[in-house]
Write a protein that binds this DNA or RNA. Structure first.
Lengths: 105, 105
DNA sequence: TCAATGGTCAAGTTTTAGCTTCACTATTTA
DNA sequence: TAAATAGTGAAGCTAAAACTTGACCATTGA
């Protein structure tokens, strides 16, 4: 099961967000995915496991090569989380008339 | 400045997500927010600092009480991040015809 | 005015996330 | 079939995140 918690945690890491960007327009093998990072293949494999558990990618091993591709399921979890809360949050703000300052330090 | 990185990291923590839920329909003081957790007030203050830096809440100290309320700015960052990527990700999946299995283990 | 309340600061501890090493398996190519 | 390629598993290290302690300040109510 993919939870919002998993998706948030997965995307909280810069390397994993970058991997997602790189998978946007093409599927990549673990090695290809690993190439730009100063990191062992093992570490990359661990990142991929986290992304897959979060439902953000799908992987399939063909022969000795594991192909990694985007899985929009995780993104949907994210969007639904945001969509479910925004009206409530917005409504509350409207009710109070935004009594707090508008600048975020 | 509020970045996607900050928002993801902030919401990756279960306590902080729960705090956001509890702020949905009312503003709360630090003590009131802290009450349900088996955690010191200091720790709660640290969580709030992270949420505020991420643009997810706004706080204002009136007298000796700090009032904490939802700030939709952080949520917007999240929604925009998802909205910007979904069409690209979806397009790619359509192009390939979803060659990978549909189950997410 | 002085004790209680609400919160903050600096410093330290504990737990967890990210990463490495090394040994290993399975597949492919020469 | 032997060497190279692609990746995995288990264990340990390290640095960052979560949390605590203890001292402290400002506000408020008795």
């Amino acid at each position: 099961m993919t939870t919002a918690a998993q998706v948030f945690q997965a995307l909280g890491d810069a390397t994993r967000r970058d991997m997602m960007e790189r998978l946007t327009d093409t599927a990549l093998s673990v090695s290809a995915l690993a190439a730009p990072y100063d990191m062992t293949l093992t570490a990359v494999g661990q990142h991929l496991a986290i992304l897959e558990a979060a439902g953000l990618i799908k992987t399939e091993k063909i022969g000795r090569v594991r192909s990694c591709a985007i899985n929009p399921a995780g993104l949907e979890v994210l969007e639904q989380w945001a969509r479910a809360r925004r009206p409530l949050w917005q409504r509350r703000l409207d009710r109070l008339g935004d009594m707090l300052d508008e600048d975020d330090a």
